[in-house]
Simulated assay, not measured.
Amino acid sequence: MLLAVDAGNTNVVFAVHDGEEWRGRWRIATRADRTSDEYAVWLLALLNHCGLKASEITSCAIGTVVPAALYNLRRLSREWFNTEPLVARADLSWGFDIEVDRPKEVGADRLLNALAAHYHYTGPLVVIDFGTATTFDVVGPTGAYLGGVIAPGINLSIEALHRAAARLPRIGIGRPQAVIGRDTVPAMQSGIYWGYVGLIEGLVTRIKGEFGGPLKVIATGGLAPLFAEGTTMIERTDPDITLEGLRLLAERNPAPIFHRTTLPDSLKIETE
């Protein structure tokens, strides 16, 4: 089985794929100082709850935009699952060209989204990822990664509004029925929700115009279904695109060699 780890700025998502389907998905808040042992205590309990064993994990793929978190995620894979993780980076075999000025600077999550979106939906297309940042990534007809747009994420905008304006409260995100708010909170909710709908529609329209042809629009991330309700620009939502990208990347690239002798005896675990 494959353990896929998608480490974002806000959450780390762990998921297990048995070769046919995803058997479980779990998330934990991203903390760069979280140790491999802390991850293990939490993750092993969840695996056990789903009837899975550590010994059934035979490979691991990690995609992260938080370099400081990678060290302990690698240790988790090595120490607790006896496998050397495949870490998503630009110099692996992706099956498509990365047609940007500095390929190594493209976030792993954006390449993973492009890989899975083209595989499942075929290009050309735009992938909108509602994460800590809201990203728009353009995939060409043959799957080539053509670049994209990075905008502030919804929750970042809400927090910035609350912090910078003394009399504005912290609000939750939801779809207001009216654009014109008749009180402070509804007015803020309208500005955030319909403002981002306008951002989506405006950017997708400009991307299509610059691309010079039609593009499918796929959305992912926890808030994707909410914003898909407010615009016809988003044709489909898919919560598993990044995880699917990790699965496909692991299939395309040989698993790194794990040397058990490199671990002290105290760190080796029984896998039988």
Rank of each mutant, 00 (worst) to 15 (best):
Q189K: 15
Q189L: 11
S190L: 13
S190Y: 12
I192H: 06
Y193E: 08
Y193R: 04
W194N: 15
G195W: 14
G195I: 03
G195E: 08
V197C: 14
V197T: 11
G198N: 09
L199R: 11
L199M: 15
I200R: 06
E201L: 04
E201I: 05
E201F: 01
G202C: 06
V204T: 08
V204I: 04
V204D: 06
V204A: 11
T205L: 13
R206A: 13
F211T: 05
G212W: 04
G212S: 11
G213C: 10
P214Y: 14
P214I: 04
K216C: 08
I218T: 02
A219I: 10
A219W: 03
A219D: 09
G221A: 02
G222T: 02
G222L: 06
A224P: 01
P225Q: 01
P225K: 04
L226M: 13
F227G: 00
A228H: 00
E229N: 09
E229M: 12
G230Y: 05
G230M: 08
G230Q: 11
T231W: 13
T231P: 08
T232I: 00
T232W: 05
M233E: 14
R236Y: 15
T237M: 01
D238T: 08
P239R: 11
P239S: 15
D240H: 09
I241D: 04
I241P: 02
L243S: 02
E244D: 13
E244Q: 15
E244A: 09
G245E: 03
L248C: 07
L248V: 06
A250R: 15
E251R: 13
P254Y: 09
A255M: 08
P256G: 02
P256E: 03
I257Q: 07
I257F: 14
I257M: 15
F258M: 04
H259Y: 14
H259L: 14
